[in-house]
Write a protein that binds this DNA or RNA. Structure first.
Length: 596
RNA sequence: GCUCCGGUAGCUCAGUUGGAUAGAGCAACGGCCUUCUAAGCCGUAGGUCAUGGGUUCGAGCCCCGUCCGGAGUACCA
């Protein structure tokens, strides 16, 4: 039982004993005491003054006395205005540390047979271009969320829906057919996804110049957009694809194959993976069948032109198209099909979509539509909505080429890490491969931490030149502190120091106790991060812990401490901080290094 | 127009269910490598929490209005 729980119960008891009234459990507000005051845990007494009919100060005195006399762990108290600051005995904190130190998985809950199964969709790329910075935020958030939910005792299935069909890939195909001269990743030396992306850009260039030409000939802009030869050809490819034309299907398979190979490399470098991948070329048919069923059951309506609609005005929303007048599927249709497939394949307790906030409306509608179609899980779908990544000069537009490419970004950061390491002379004693691994880990740590430390809900600004740093509140700073702790622990081993679980009744120094308190918060932080879907809570927690440790490290010596008991305690403290940092970073998908 | 989200230091961001004197990092300035890793530590400076009201013992946080920014808004995904 944690100290908070013990106090909570005793405070309710105290109020009942002292004032003869029952206080609501949620009126007990405990918080950690601010640094400028003495004490560890603070009770806010304002909610109880009505019951005590005394001043806040006097009420706090009453409660303080009661708790000191009736709770073993409470070693003292002081009152400042309406705040009761309780001091908790050192022995309690030493025990907390001992528990954390010896626990195999401190703060992490393992899933069991009957744990809920959560399926999390993230990444969800189109197959016509390489991944960019926006995808990076998605992938990092998705992966981290999976880790956090696992740590909260859930079974997790990581899934990806690949948008492999549609007009976008046909545009790349069309440009490749017209201008490609049979170019392949092998012949060009380009990564597959970049090669296909190159033709997507070429298509757009060509398309735009055709429009300009037609407009110059006197056609209206709308007409020109419809009648530009490139677009006509791309639409023809889409039609052929839907009719299963052999050559078209073959080309589609080949080019998608190139892209998948490229994606695999990016995913691997980013350190994310999936348990199950769905393809929209499979699920859109399921979705279309569901929509047609809905139509025949009178849930949806059809217009004269043949298009199928859902009327959501009763729910306060608009009318939503589900099938185009030519019978083809839209985005929504595919998501209906994908959802149905998933719930067929797994016994899902909770389905989470990691998708940008531009699609808030889409998921609101999807949930209602599935509910209308009679799927009892429809209402329970959860959209983990995150903000956009903006650049200093505005937002990213793939067509305008103002995107930050994922591969380029990672390569660039690894290069910076390599240079910085060399300048700082951090390489000595490391083999070539060890050094490379270290650069990579640091660079990825910087990138991941930078993105994950921001509240997912908010838009964030990313300045490629300036944003990424290796100093201050960054991934490398945390990795560095971890490496230094490892170094101390190695030296302890070299000096034949035997580290044992602390069972002493040493009086703790202020900073030692601060650190233990911080360590004790790991468990609740994981829970909160799981409840709120916020890797940022973990990131900020780990930073605070590391910052706290650095101050401790600066003020106290560990190995040079002469009192053996105290030295042991501090080694245990350092080791536990390292352990918490390692698991915290793992929840963010960030690796740590033994030396840097 | 309507709906949703946001606005905290020059910049990037934290800020627990409403609690004490709003915190970090970057950038600037000053100090610290004969001390367990200086990718570090210490210090100085930097704030009308967009704005006007309201709720209450107490508001950066909750409610209403205004301003600014972003996203979505019926045959793109």
């Amino acid at each position: 039982m944690t100290i908070e729980l013990i106090l909570r119960n005793k405070i309710l008891e105290a109020i009942s004993q002292l004032y003869g009234q029952e206080a609501a459990p949620e009126s007990v507000q405990l918080q950690s005491t601010r640094k400028e005051f003495e004490g560890d845990i603070t009770l806010v007494v304002f909610p109880f003054v009505r019951m005590s009919k005394k001043s806040p100060e006097q009420t706090a005195e009453d409660l303080g006395n009661y708790l000191q006399n009736n709770v073993e762990e409470v070693s003292g108290f002081n009152v400042v205005k309406g705040f009761l600051n309780l001091s908790i005995a050192s022995s309690y904190w030493v025990n907390v540390l001992a528990d954390a130190y010896s626990a195999a998985q401190f703060g992490i809950k393992e899933a069991t047979e009957d744990s809920p199964l959560v399926m999390i969709e993230y990444s969800s790329p189109n197959t016509n271009k390489p991944l960019h910075l926006g995808h990076i935020r998605n992938n990092l958030l998705g992966f981290s969320l999976c880790e956090i939910l696992k740590a909260n005792g859930n079974k997790v299935v990581k899934t990806n829906i690949v948008n492999d069909r549609g007009i976008h890939i046909c545009k790349s195909m069309q440009a490749w057919l017209q201008q490609g001269n049979g170019e392949t990743p092998e012949s060009s030396g380009l990564k597959g996804d970049h090669l296909v992306g190159k033709y997507y850009v070429l298509f757009d260039k060509q398309y735009k110049s055709e429009i300009n030409e037609l407009v110059a000939q006197g056609m209206s802009k709308e007409e020109a957009e419809q009648n530009a030869p490139s677009m006509v050809a791309a639409r023809e490819l889409l039609r052929k694809w839907e009719n299963k034309d052999t050559a078209t299907i073959e080309l589609w398979k080949t080019m998608n194959g190139w892209v998948y190979k490229g994606f695999d490399v990016t995913y691997k470098n980013l350190g994310v993976d999936f348990d199950k991948i769905y393809y929209e070329s499979d699920t859109y048919i399921v979705g279309r069948d569901e929509v047609l069923r809905g139509l025949s059951e009178g849930i949806f309506t059809q217009k004269e032109d043949g298009s199928v609609w859902a009327d959501l005005t009763a729910e306060g929303l608009d009318q939503k198209i589900l099938l185009r007048s030519d019978g083809t599927s839209v985005y929504m249709t595919q998501d209906i099909g994908t959802a149905k497939e998933r719930f067929n394949d797994y016994s899902i307790d909770k389905m989470v979509y990691v998708v940008g906030n531009e699609q808030n409306y889409h998921f609101q509608v999807l949930s209602i539509l599935l509910d209308k179609l009679g799927f009892e899980w429809g209402k329970g779908l959860q959209h983990f909505s995150y903000g956009m990544v903006e650049l200093p000069n505005g937002k990213m537009k793939s067509r305008e080429g103002t995107v930050v490419d994922a591969d380029d970004l990672m390569d660039g950061m690894i290069e910076v890490a390599r240079q910085t390491s060399k300048e700082l002379g951090k390489l000595e004693g490391l083999s070539e491969t060890e050094a490379e691994y270290t650069f990579r880990t640091i660079a990825l740590g910087a990138l991941k931490y930078f993105i994950l430390k921001v509240d997912p809900k908010k838009n964030m600004l990313f300045n490629p030149e300036e944003s990424i740093d290796f100093n201050g509140n960054t991934g490398p700073f945390i990795q560095y502190t971890y490496a230094r702790i490892q170094s101390v622990l190695r030296k302890a081993t070299d000096q034949q120091i035997n580290i044992t679980t602390p069972a002493c009744n040493l009086e703790l120094a202020g900073k030692e106790q601060e650190l233990i308190k911080k360590i004790a918060q790991f468990e609740t932080t994981i829970k909160e991060a799981g409840d709120m879907y916020s890797p940022a809570l973990i990131a900020n927690y780990v930073y605070d812990l590391v910052k706290e440790f650095n101050q401790f490290y600066h003020d106290f010596s560990i190995l040079k401490e002469e009192n053996e008991e105290r030295r042991n305690l501090r080694l245990v403290l350092a080791g536990t901080v390292a352990k918490v940092v390692r698991s915290g970073m793992k929840l963010l998908g960030i690796d740590v290094v033994e030396r840097m």
